[in-house]
């Protein structure tokens, strides 16, 4: 019993020490950051085609996190009303919800895809069928362009 108590105390102290150290550091998700030069999110949104397919490093606050699978974060831009989705493959990186509001630098490849109205309706119908929900095609009035960073790695400031 005494031995078990000592082991438990040692484990608790170890985790406590690791946690205290981690508070001052950046937590890494996925691969290591390779780029040094950052690209402003406002520049990407202003001219997405210029950056399409390019590897980019962006920074900003994490303003939203995928609640179900932690498979994306939304990074706030340097200008108001702008943000960029940082999408990772399911399970490869899992972002916890508690990083919402923290600052991040994140690296990935920019993807710009334009969907026609017909594409969106077809996709909406397929999604509704798969999920067993209802879909109203009249809610889709025009096509849209989806800009997102296919995420590979991110550093999140944990204070």
């Amino acid at each position: 019993m005494k031995t078990i108590s000592i082991i438990l105390i040692a484990i608790a102290l170890t985790f406590n020490t690791v946690d205290a150290g981690a508070k001052k550091e950046k937590r890494k998700y996925g691969k290591a950051i390779t780029l040094k030069e950052k690209t402003k999110i406002s520049d990407i949104i202003a001219n997405p085609e210029k950056f399409n397919g390019k590897r980019l490093l962006v920074e900003g606050p994490i303003v939203d996190v995928c609640k179900e699978r932690g498979c994306w974060i939304k990074i706030g831009g340097d200008k108001e009303f702008e943000s960029l989705r940082f999408k990772v493959e399911d399970g490869v990186i899992v972002f916890p919800l508690e990083i919402k509001g923290k600052s991040t630098v994140a690296e990935g490849v920019l993807s710009v895809k334009t969907y026609s109205k017909e594409d969106l309706i077809k996709s909406g119908e397929e999604h509704a069928k798969k999920e067993g929900t209802e879909f109203d095609p009249s809610t889709i009035t025009e096509g849209k362009t989806v800009i997102q960073l296919k995420g590979e790695g991110a550093l999140v400031e944990i204070q």
């Binding site: 606050p61 994490i62 303003v63 108001e80 009303f81 943000s83 509001g101 923290k102």
Partner: peptide, 10 residues
């Protein structure tokens, strides 16, 4: 003070 601040829309 908040950790971060963001304006998603006006």
């Amino acid at each position: 003070s908040p950790e971060n601040y963001f304006r998603p829309d006006s």
